[in-house]
Simulated scan of single mutants.
Amino acid sequence: MFIEFLRTNRYVSYVLAIIRLYLGIQWMKAGWGKIVSGNFDAAGFMQGALKQVSGSHPAVQPWWGVFLKELALPNIELFNTLVPWGEFLVGISLILGLFTSFSVLMGLTMNFAYMFSGAVSTNPQMIILGIFILIAGINAGKVGADRWVIHRLFPEKKSVEYMAKSA
């Protein structure tokens, strides 16, 4: 019942737009700060996470430590590009309401990656808000560019037809 409410209520789309704007600004600022500083390096963060893998109750799970040690750190230059640009583009996309579901999914993926690495910060609140947007689906982008773009890309989708008629 609540999920259907999130997905179909016309007024909820405005609340979701506010949440989307908030998340978008947070992501955009985080990414832009890393881009303009020109010296972003995720290696220290990842090495710090690896230090938290040991002990009887590790803050970072061993399987995630293997990922960081074997995949992420050897490819640190790729991650040093993906992280700031990923944050920035997720932010812009959420602000515009463009490809909202995909963007929030990518934002949630980053939030979980940071939490897996032992950084709590604002990630839990961003995850909760992001989940509302993700569950709402097309309704979360109704007050945004998705209203026109998704309708043009996928005219056969009934949910998009509903979106176009109900706004």
Rank of each mutant, 00 (worst) to 15 (best):
Y162L: 05
I135L: 14
Y11E: 05
F45K: 07
V160G: 03
G97C: 03
G97D: 01
M115T: 07
I3V: 12
H57V: 15
P84Y: 03
V53K: 01
E4R: 12
S117N: 06
F88Q: 10
I76V: 09
W63C: 07
T122F: 11
S93Q: 10
S121Q: 06
K34M: 11
F132K: 01
F67R: 01
I92E: 02
K29L: 15
W64A: 05
V149M: 04
S103D: 10
V53L: 04
L89K: 03
K29G: 10
L23F: 10
W32A: 15
A17V: 12
V60E: 02
V36C: 05
V12I: 14
A43M: 07
I18K: 02
L50M: 13
S101D: 12
L98M: 08
I3E: 10
L73E: 06
M28T: 15
Y162S: 02
I150D: 07
I138W: 06
M163N: 00
M110S: 10
K34T: 10
K51T: 13
G118M: 00
L73Y: 02
E87V: 08
I19P: 09
N123C: 03
M110L: 13
A17K: 08
F102I: 15
S56L: 14
L73T: 01
M46W: 05
S56H: 12
I92D: 01
T122L: 11
M46Q: 04
F2M: 04
K69V: 03
L21F: 15
N123V: 01
G55N: 08
R10T: 14
Y11Q: 12
K69E: 13
S101I: 15
K142A: 10
I3C: 03
I150R: 09
F88L: 15
E161V: 09
S54V: 14
V143M: 14
A119G: 00
L6C: 04
L94S: 09
F2K: 05
I35A: 11
I19F: 14
L108P: 06
A136S: 13
A167D: 08
I18C: 09
G44H: 00
V36H: 09
